[in-house]
Design a protein around this nucleic acid. Sequence first.
RNA 1: GCGAGAGUGGUGAAAUUGGUAGACACGCUAGAUUUAGGAUCUAGUGCCGAAAGGCUUGGGGGUUCGAGUCCCCCCUCUCGUACCA
Length: 877
Amino acid sequence: MSEYKPELIEPRWQEFWLKNKIFQTDDNDRHRPKYYVLDMFPYPSSSGLHVGHPEGYTATDIIARYKRMNGYNVLHPIGWDAFGLPAEQYAIKTGTHPRKTTIRNIDGFRRQLQSLGFSYDWDREVDTTDPAYYRWTQWIVLKMFEKGLAYEASVPVNWCPALGTVLANEEVIDGKSEVGGYPVERKPMRQWMLKITEYAERLLEDLEGLDWPESIKEMQRNWIGKSEGANALFRLKSDETAQIEVFTTRPDTLFGATYMVLAPEHTLVDRITTKAQKEAVAEYREMAARKSDLDRTDLNKDKTGVFTGAYAVNPVNGEEIPVWIADYVMMSYGTGAIMAVPGHDERDWEFARKYDLPIVEVVKGGNIEEEAYTDIEEGISVNSANDEISLNGLPVAEAKTQISKWLEEKGLGKYAVTYKLRDWLFSRQRYWGEPFPVIHVDGKPKPLPEDQLPVTLPEMDDFLPTKTGEPPLAKAGDWLQTTDPETGKPAVRETNTMPQWAGSCWYYLRYISPDYEQGPVDPEKEKYWMPVDLYVGGAEHAVLHLLYARFWHKVLYDIGVVSTREPFYRLVNQGMILGELEFTAYKDNSGNYVHPEESGKGEDLERIKLTEKEVEKKGDKFVIRGTGTPVDARSFKMSKSRGNVINPDDVVKQYGADSLRLYEMFMGPLEQVKPWSMQGVEGVYRFLKRVWRLFIDEESGEPVAQIMSAAEAEPDRVHLKLLHEAIKKVTEDIEGHRFNTAISALMIFTNEAMKWDSRPVVVLRPFVLLLSPFAPHLAEELWSVLGKIDGKGEATLANEPWPEYDEACLKDDTKIYAVQVNGKVRGQIEVPADKAAVKDFVLEVARNDTGVQRHLSNGKVVKEIFVPNRVINFVVK
RNA sequence: GCGAGAGUGGUGAAAUUGGUAGACACGCUAGAUUUAGGAUCUAGUGCCGAAAGGCUUGGGGGUUCGAGUCCCCCCUCUCGUACCA
């Protein structure tokens, strides 16, 4: 071998690592500190890896390799979140059993991941579709039944006829299914729910201690949506027995409540509606029921509603106020009813304007003729007094406390907290998911005893749901009919299955003891390994996966299965990788290039893709070269339809896994969104070739003559300075996840070392170790080359200690100062290091610099700034 | 609308506490070696200018001897969210 040929090097080392189980984690070694570094659970899709996967995986692999070399016992596993809709839909289309597809896809993913040289412990693979795994998923759900955290409910769900299943709110985007984009409608169905709301407060509170991106924490906080306020009771004018309870965050505006609104689905509506209004109300309710959530929000500019004919009494001032129904009030939030304060709530203001309802000012500070005044900092209560209490003159916060106290004393209301978070709709009408460990006896659901687990999926060849929306499992006759193991009574199995989230809620625990038989995780090992020290994945899981997993973890904590309150101590989101930068010009019907925005008829324009050479930059935009016609210059999300998808396999084939890994890390900061560039891959590939030539003579294929063993040549100060600078920079940058600048430090070392006539092994060896987390195949290869030269070193560098830098080697003989005059750099001076901190000496040298002198002669020096080892500034007047 | 984040060369980006802006890489220009090369090496490359010099981190103000970095106002983009009372 002569040139750098990754296709020859890489498979050899991958096989070596695998065969010798180099990265197998030793569970019983409790002396070393542990480090658990985790990638987000991949779904093994049929299309294989995309370049986004290796981004996070490379980052965690670098950390894992680095931590091992630093003496940590590292847990770095991978597995498969393999239940899910695509395999089932493929089965419906082709008749191929989902298990078959799943196995094939997993094999594909495993092959791809291994071809990238990731240092996973392959003996810990887990697969959510394996009964040995989902046995414990079912077990956890069983525990939830026991704790009363799972219940059945008939809820209007997002029924997608095309997919034949119910979708969670978060799987519906703009009224269409996230998968496939099919229309979704509302339909009431029997469902399993999990009481995540019971954990709302803890899920919110425990965010505090987590080292997560602030944006993700904020999204979770918003999702949980805690509001503090009061519940207040309004009695009805005509019906002494009925009361309307409302939730408000602004009890201080109670005197300004001029009407009330119930959600159309509110149970009181039938009871309070007057005869005269019955028809109008019924009509409105029917219309509202037909609307999906999307339609409701879509129409949010034009609020609608109907008067019920009933009046309620405002408890603070005895005013009789009309009760309306309107779909801008949601049954699922708060109490499903509001007191409307149009003076100080935008929505109520709009509604009141439209239906000509009175608007009263009770907080001074704005102009309620123009818009609702919602400020809570400056506003002062007015018009808010009765015989017993007056809020007048109080700021909002104080008014809130006063009125809440009063309401409570009177039994008219009390302090209340409401969350946006809803219970988790936990069942799906699908085949390819975990069956529930539940049977129905005498029409009632009953959890199975633990020893009946796992409840395995029945073999089927028809995966279509029934026409009524009953899950496919309803067709599994033999499986469906069973007996209650306790009573022997005939029983029917639950036919819903769990959503895909279930398996991914606790997989990080199974990795710890994948073969443990007595529970989901070996408690002793759990105590050693948990929590996860570093969790890396895409921001698309910011809310759902991370919230669900935190919820399950807390349940497991409560029943003593895990020892930590939170599963993931530190979270990092990798930024999305976009396609290559694209230049697009637009032509109109007559074939003239136009500006897309100025033309104002964007839909008729023809899009022309231009190359980099066909455009130039003018001002702050790109134009067609030689003309003034602007073009769009943008990178887009990779997608099949756009044709800008990069397949990692192709990159590996052309440049090798090390180049792919290196490029993905060199592109920019891990967390940032960044566009792909094939030329950038070329760049790092050239770097690796240069590294190769630092060691190997391309003509002969032998090590270069410049390499000196320890016996032949001592490293000199220049060698050591360069090396130790690299060690310092690379070490600190890996610790701070600044992989791009770490690579740049490796490049600087290589560029300099290439010029050396003598390349001492004792300098090259640490360099190879620094390179190894980034480009492990090349590093192993070069390590073995060095081993042949001086007969030292192990067969693999994976367990070598990480190099440490020596401060003494970093010292310079001289220091360089920038010399400024009035803040502008006018010269540069070099002074001996031992005198660099001597102010008078350095200033004298600076004054004598010819370039500086010229600028000093213009006036009088009034001030001299001296920043040791950096800069001097003369202020001249 | 609201919330969060980000704007630095032709491009991806550096600049860890306020101290020489543009490291490293891509691209480009010239040259060398060369049958050729998407190979390698050398030199150059923020902008304006012949040079001296001036200008420059989205725009405008401010603090400071000194601002990409701190403060105020504005603009643009990305992501999230959507009647949550």
